[in-house]
Design a protein around this nucleic acid. Structure first.
Length: 779
DNA sequence: TTAGGGTTAG
């Protein structure tokens, strides 16, 4: 750490210096003395303009006055600084600053007889391992600005794979895990933070401070931190970081493209353009190398038996007993299950009575235990919280017919369990506030009666299934979306008629194929009418590996419509990865609006990028342009969906064709539009199933060919969404309950059409379901 | 000093 601006303002500089350094008296700055681990401190009384020496290196000269020897005949000394250190020092130094030097070389001063200063001078340079600590004098003008503007020290940051036991270092890292500050069993707050950096080495830091604001303000995994003066120790064979004297931290949101605004643990800090660049580079690295979960769960999305982080507002709080405490919170969405209400004395409930009543159908009770109680008690009603690792537990009370969901914040700090208070400046809070203000409370009050219905359709247990079946005996489980005026036709009549024709039928679903529902998803080309299987991940991985053999072509980087970053992996393969971020109006967009192209990425890396960015297009370089990969690879990834093109019908164009969409006023990055400009005829995800329908007169095999209307589930999403797969399975269980006799099966109302398929050998009539959907209360 | 990451069991 060659040049450090320790602090601006008053204070004791010694407490911030590395402990191994001892102060040296001016009188002892003589040849023959050992100055290792010594520092000299003086006030800057004179400095010369930064100049270059004959060999081109920078040179900066400073005169220091020794305050301890003010009345001596000789009380000043020349400091000669060479190289980059000279440049860095010249930028930040002001007269009157306290200047501390260590690791210097002492030599006879050739000008001692002329300037009346000390007989020796001190020489410093980065190469010689010198260190300079500048303890700035309070600035008299615009002091507050100076304090937060980049006044320019030069810190050295140690990569996590270069940490050594017993050192004090500065470092950057991406938060891989953290425990929000909690009350330790000692006297301090504690926060545990695990960092990782592009060296792929992890460092777990144990941070203590009596003042919770002095600990890093980390709100989520993926945040980036800058630690200054963290002690490194070895513990259990691994390096460990721990707070020591002078520890300070800055925390940044880790999302690529968001403003780089530090959250500081101290009032005064330095932050410069170069450090901004570091943050931006780490963001890009993290985006493709770390799995950072997507948007946090909302109450509307909770399911029983899971742990999740909830961003919410505190509406009320109450003591329950010695080891638990109640928090009433809301996030504007409605939990789809009945939620438990923790019984408390009305007089113990703190919060606006009117608000508590208004929000009664949207608030949930979170019971926090043990070590979290103290922090929970101190929370202010109205504040915004993130509660980490809440447990949703399904339970039934003795006097209840249906089960409910309980929210517990169990004791302990495993998995980062805890409570964090978010400031109103936090982007998630701003978003939440705007949403809360838009919530129509009249709607939520009408929802009271809805919970049990929603519960029925989502809880997958025998009782619920039974009640559905009883209902199914009376009403059809599918309904027509059109042609209501048509009369039903018996299956026998249909079988005896010529095609093509259209019919309304009432029948039961005896069986269906495929029984493994994921096998029903195919890719369909509406141009050539071909159907194909959805490629599996291995095919794509293989194509990616093949394309990574060719290194990105740097001549294609940073064009008028995209910015490029490239780096080399640190493993043995030394793989080169390039990411091209498409710009709009010459600016990068928010990640959720951004389309990027990646070269040289692995399946995992591509997949991770899709979690954070709107669109990802895997590409490779040619001499002249970026192009799409093999036509068997997806040409676009959006969210969980891979978009494929038809090999027969597509004529791929160079990637630069995309720039026309980038230039649009509001590029929507619709897959169909992207496909069109890239010369791709997109394949569509479809459900293809064969239903065997029966009525009193006969049986008929009917095909279901559906994008999303029948199940009200998009075929494109089913392969990557377990929840939707379960939902589809439950729907099929309703339509065709396993193990039932024909009489007990529910009725389906369908609209079908017959059509002819002829080839040289034979003629056949086929039947297909149309304009039919699963009834609303079955889904 | 405290905690030193890897879910409670109310």
């Amino acid at each position: 750490m060659p040049v450090q601006l320790l602090k601006i303002g008053k204070g004791n500089s010694e407490t911030l210096l590395p402990r191994h350094l001892q102060k040296e008296n001016l009188k002892h700055l003589q040849e023959g003395f050992d100055h290792t681990n010594k520092y000299f401190q003086g006030i800057v009384v004179l400095s010369y303009p930064l100049t270059k020496l004959g060999d081109g290196t920078d040179f900066f000269k400073v005169v220091l006055q020794d305050l301890d020897n003010l009345y001596s005949r000789t009380n000043s000394i020349n400091i000669l600084i060479h190289g980059k250190m000279a440049e860095d020092c010249a930028k930040v130094l002001h007269h009157g600053d306290t200047f501390i030097v260590a690791g210097f070389k002492l030599a006879k001063s050739p000008t001692a007889g002329l300037d009346g200063r000390h007989g020796c001078h001190l020489e410093l340079s980065e190469e010689a391992g010198s260190a300079i600590y500048i303890y700035a004098k309070p600035r008299t003008t615009a002091a507050s600005e100076t304090a937060s503007l980049p006044v320019a020290p030069k810190y050295v940051y140690t990569p996590l794979n270069h940490l050594k036991d017993g050192t004090v270092v500065n470092l950057y890292g991406v938060v891989k895990f953290f425990k929000p500050p909690y009350v330790s069993k000692g006297t301090d707050y504690c926060s545990v933070v695990t960092l990782v950096d592009p060296s792929n080495v992890r460092l777990t830091c144990t941070l203590f401070n009596g003042n919770v604001d002095s600990l890093p303000k980390i709100y989520k995994v993926g945040d980036i931190v800058r630690f200054h003066r963290i002690k490194i120790r070895e513990y259990n064979g691994q390096m460990q970081g721990i707070t020591g004297v002078g520890f300070a931290s800055l925390t940044f949101d880790g999302t690529v493209g968001t403003p780089v605004v530090p959250r500081s643990s101290s009032k005064v800090y330095t932050f410069m353009d170069e450090e901004q660049k570091t943050i931006e580079e780490l963001r890009v690295w993290a985006a493709s190398n770390l799995s950072i979960s997507g948007p946090a769960a909302k109450l509307s999305g909770v399911r029983p038996m899971l742990f999740f982080d909830l961003t919410c507002q505190l509406v009320g709080k109450a003591k329950v007993d010695g080891s638990s405490f109640l928090l009433k919170v809301w996030d504007g969405t409605k939990c789809p299950y009945p939620t438990w209400k923790v019984p408390v004395e009305a007089r113990d409930l703190e919060g606006e009575k009117v608000v508590l009543h208004q929000l009664r159908n949207l608030t949930v009770d979170v019971l926090v235990y043990d070590n979290h109680v103290q922090l929970a008690k101190s929370l202010k009603v109205g504040s915004f919280l993130r509660i980490y690792s809440i447990h949703t537990k399904q339970a039934s009370a003795v006097d209840e017919d249906v089960s409910h969901i309980e929210f517990h914040l169990h004791g302990g700090t495993c998995y980062g369990r805890g409570i964090g208070v978010l400031p109103e400046s936090n982007l998630d809070v701003k978003e939440l506030k705007a949403f809360l203000e838009s919530v129509d409370l009249a709607d939520s009050q009408n929802m009271e009666s809805m919970s049990s219905v929603e519960l029925d359709s989502t809880f997958n247990n025998v009782t619920d299934l039974e009640s559905h079946l009883q209902r199914s005996q009376q009403l059809p489980v599918t309904v027509l979306t059109d042609h209501q005026d048509l009369n039903n036709t018996e299956l026998k009549t249909i079988l005896n008629s010529t095609a093509p024709q259209q019919y309304r039928i009432r029948a039961k679903l005896r069986t269906y194929k495929p029984q493994k529902l994921y096998q029903s998803i195919k890719l369909y080309c509406s141009k050539c009418n071909s159907l194909q299987e959805v490629p599996d991940g291995d095919d794509f991985d293989f194509i990616l590996q093949g394309s990574a053999v060719t290194a990105p072509n740097p001549e294609l980087h940073n064009t008028s419509w995209y910015d490029s970053v490239m780096w080399t992996t640190q493993d043995q393969k030394q793989r080169k990865i390039a990411i091209h971020f498409v710009k709009h109006d010459e600016m990068l967009q928010q990640p959720e609006d951004t389309l990027l192209m990646i070269e040289g990425g692995t399946l995992k890396e591509v997949w991770k990028l899709t979690k954070r960015f709107k669109c990802v297009i895997p590409v490779r370089s040619t001499e002249d342009d970026l192009v799409l990969l093999d036509p068997s690879a997806p040409f676009l990834l959006q969210g969980n969906i891979k978009y494929y093109g038809c090999k027969q019908c597509s004529t791929p164009k160079p990637i630069k064709s995309l720039s026309s969409i980038a230039a649009e006023q509001r590029p929507s990055w619709e897959p169909t539009e992207i496909a069109q400009v890239l010369g791709i005829v997109p394949l569509q995800y479809v459900f293809i199933m064969k239903f065997t329908l029966v009525d009193a007169t006969g049986a008929l095999n009917v095909y279901l060919f559906d994008y999303e209307n029948f199940f009200q589930i998009p075929a494109s999403e089913i392969l990557t969404n377990n929840f939707l797969q379960q939902k589809m399975q439950m729907t099929m269980n309703m339509l065709c309950p396993p193990g039932r006799k024909l009489d007990d099966l529910p009725w389906l109302e369908c609209f079908i059409k017959s059509y002819n398929v002829r080839d040289a050998m034979k003629h056949q009539v086929y039947y297909q379901i149309f304009d039919t959907t699963v009834a609303e209360d079955v889904v």
